[in-house]
């Protein structure tokens, strides 16, 4: 339990052991054990309220947990503000509701963390931000404000923003759930492209097509526990537990 070395264990960039979390009396996460290899792409799915968002929000300490241990890049997550900031500067998150900063232009949204957290010059940050915006296909919107963009565009900006700091790990918290149907694919396309570049990704999503296409491992959670985990092939075709079978039948009938 006191594994606090700075180096990676067996290439695991994230190691979660015996993680337990309560909201008041509600036991939200129960004995979670999860190791993520560097460059691995993991999809977490499950019914709503199953704790999947809570789990990935524990990884960058947006949620505090009461028991267990999380190592990110060999650093243990504790209350230490310094360590948390270090981990957060290497772990990026994309939110369900984008959470862009509405008082800043798109380009300022992107350059904020590079300038203030990573001490880059304005010029460097701006150039990188523009090239990232170009990659997600909205370079021409750089000087606009978030609310002038469509949902799909905003989420692509949010992805570009989280890439701006060259993170080692990307966390996606239901990135397409708040989008209108016709905008989902533009965001997923960007995510697929990212997945092909070898960045470590953990995605909470209901997009099973995306999971089939890029995931190396799919984790099914229910009632705060990891019920099943498998590679996509076996996950969809050889589900073991009844709960997963039920979930798959509900989600794949459409």
């Amino acid at each position: 339990m006191n594994n606090q070395t700075g180096s990676l264990n067996n290439g695991n960039i994230i190691e979660i052991s015996q993680l337990n979390k309560w909201y008041g009396d509600f036991h939200a996460l129960k004995n979670i054990n999860l190791n993520v290899k560097e460059g691995e792409i993991i999809v977490v799915c499950g019914p709503s309220g199953s704790g999947k968002s809570t789990l990935i929000r524990c990884i960058n300490f947006l949620e505090k947990f009461q028991e267990g241990q999380i190592l990110v890049g060999g650093t243990e997550l504790t209350d230490d503000a310094q360590k948390i900031r270090k981990i957060r500067s290497e772990v990026s998150m994309v939110f369900q509701h984008f959470n862009l900063f509405p008082h800043l232009t798109i380009i300022d949204n992107l350059t904020l963390a590079p300038i203030w957290v990573h001490n880059e010059t304005k010029q460097e940050a701006r150039e990188k931000a523009l090239s990232l915006l170009d990659r997600v296909g909205i370079k021409d919107q750089a000087e606009k404000y978030p609310n002038q963009l469509s949902g799909g565009q905003q989420q692509r900006v949010a992805i570009a923003r989280s890439l701006c700091t060259s993170p080692k790990i990307m966390l996606f918290d239901e990135p397409t759930s708040a989008l209108d149907p016709e905008m989902i694919s533009e965001v997923l396309d960007v995510m697929v492209e990212l997945a092909n570049e070898g960045i470590t990704m953990i995605c909470v999503t209901h997009e099973m097509g995306f999971a089939k296409k890029v995931a190396q491992r799919i984790i099914f959670m229910d009632e705060g526990q990891v019920v099943e985990e498998n590679d996509p092939e076996n996950f969809f075709n050889n589900a073991e537990s009844d709960r997963l079978k039920l979930f798959l039948s509900q989600i794949l009938t459409h």
């Binding site: 957060r88 500067s89 998150m93 939110f95 959470n99 904020l112 963390a113 989280s162 700091t165």
Partner: peptide
């Protein structure tokens, strides 16, 4: 979400 986004980028 604004607080969370600010936290998440390491401010």
């Amino acid at each position: 979400g604004q607080y969370e986004a600010a936290d998440a980028i390491g401010l």
